[in-house]
């Protein structure tokens, strides 16, 4: 197991390098220049000052030199200082925002898997019934609904029309003065809409996937054997079939991460949640190069770690992989 883990972590190094290289190339090849973007709003800045700024940020050096310099800093999680007026280190800015985005996404993930697995299993075991068909309709709708539109509709309905739920931010004004319990309740209330939107987005795909892997497993010989032994249907489904059907779903867990993080731009912008997605959107709009590069690298890195975790879970569940025979 340790062997497997070490191998997997070593394999991440070239991927990490590739991620930084692509980030660097993509951002630096895009037209427009960081110093121009920084100084566009300051009419007093002369060409000479611009040149000095370029030297200060090392932007006058050849690209490959710049990349290596940047990479060395990135290796120590130093992404430089933001171009925003506060000039704070990018790492600090991201560190403040990650917990919000990550916990939102983890809650959404737990809900998603918690709902999708029973939905999928039930649809598979009740194939072609009205329930199964209803689920299929729901799944297709879930695929097709644009997240931001769903957010808009929910905001209108629950926020504006019914006035039940707050539609922006994470806390009410003046919530600092609340008791701990009502502070927490207030936070939960603010989370309902964004979490529902984030969950609904991928629930459809996951339930469908669960349904089809379950159908696949139910056809296997060992399920027939289990039934032939006279085991109760419940035991066959939940002890024999479900365990095997869950295996491929674990891998999906890792894959769904970039989508979740990417999707956070949309719902964090709509619901005004101070997370990484919102920070990224603001950074992109302000052409804050160090910030954008930092978030791209960290977003991809989180995905890598997510994939690693998924693979480790898979290895724990499937001894063939663990022992290198898979």
């Amino acid at each position: 197991m340790l062997n497997y883990l070490a191998k997997r972590i070593l394999a991440m190094i070239p991927l990490m390098l590739g991620i930084t290289l692509i980030t660097f190339v993509v951002i630096r090849l895009a037209p427009g220049e960081p110093v121009e973007a920084m100084t566009a709003l300051s009419p007093k800045i002369t060409a000479e000052t611009r040149q000095r700024l370029r030297e200060f940020y090392g932007l006058d050096k050849p690209l490959h030199v710049q990349y290596v310099t940047w990479l060395k800093k990135v290796a120590t999680f130093d992404f430089g200082r933001s171009f925003a007026p506060d000039h704070r280190p990018v790492t600090d800015k991201i560190r403040e925002r990650i917990p919000v985005t990550l916990s939102l996404n983890i809650i959404a993930l737990i809900l998603e898997f918690g709902l999708a697995i029973p939905i999928g299993v039930f649809a598979a075991t009740h194939r072609d019934t009205l329930y199964d068909k209803g689920i299929t309709v729901f799944v297709f709708l879930g695929f097709a609904v644009p997240t931001f539109w769903l957010a808009l509709l929910l905001m209108y309905f629950f926020g504006v029309k019914l006035g039940w739920l707050p539609i922006s931010g994470l806390h009410s004004l003046g919530s600092e003065g609340y008791s701990r319990l009502s502070w927490f309740g207030d936070l939960l209330k603010h989370l309902i809409l964004p979490v529902s939107v984030a969950t609904f987005g991928s629930l459809a795909g996951l339930s469908r996937y669960m349904r089809s892997t379950m159908l696949e497993v139910i056809r296997q010989d060992y399920i027939t054997t289990a039934r032939a032994k006279g085991l109760a249907e419940r035991t066959v489904i939940y002890r024999h079939a479900l365990r095997n059907a869950l295996l491929p779903v674990i891998t999906l867990l890792g894959f769904s991460l970039p989508g979740l993080i990417g999707g956070s731009v949309i719902f964090e912008t709509i619901f005004a949640i101070p997370g990484m997605g919102q920070l990224f959107y603001q950074g992109v709009m302000a052409r804050d190069y160090p910030l954008v590069m930092g978030i791209l690298v960290i977003g991809a890195f989180l995905t890598l770690v997510g994939n690693l975790l998924a693979d480790v879970c898979y290895a724990v569940a499937d001894p063939r992989i663990r022992q290198g025979r898979g």
């Binding site: 427009g32 052409r287 791209l296 890195f301 995905t303 890598l304």
Partner: peptide, 24 residues
Amino acid sequence: MRFVDIMLCFPTFFLILAVIAFLE
């Protein structure tokens, strides 16, 4: 295939946003 793996690591929407915002 490693290139594919790397590209799949990026939250696609972030990547698209980053490039588009820097272009006209």
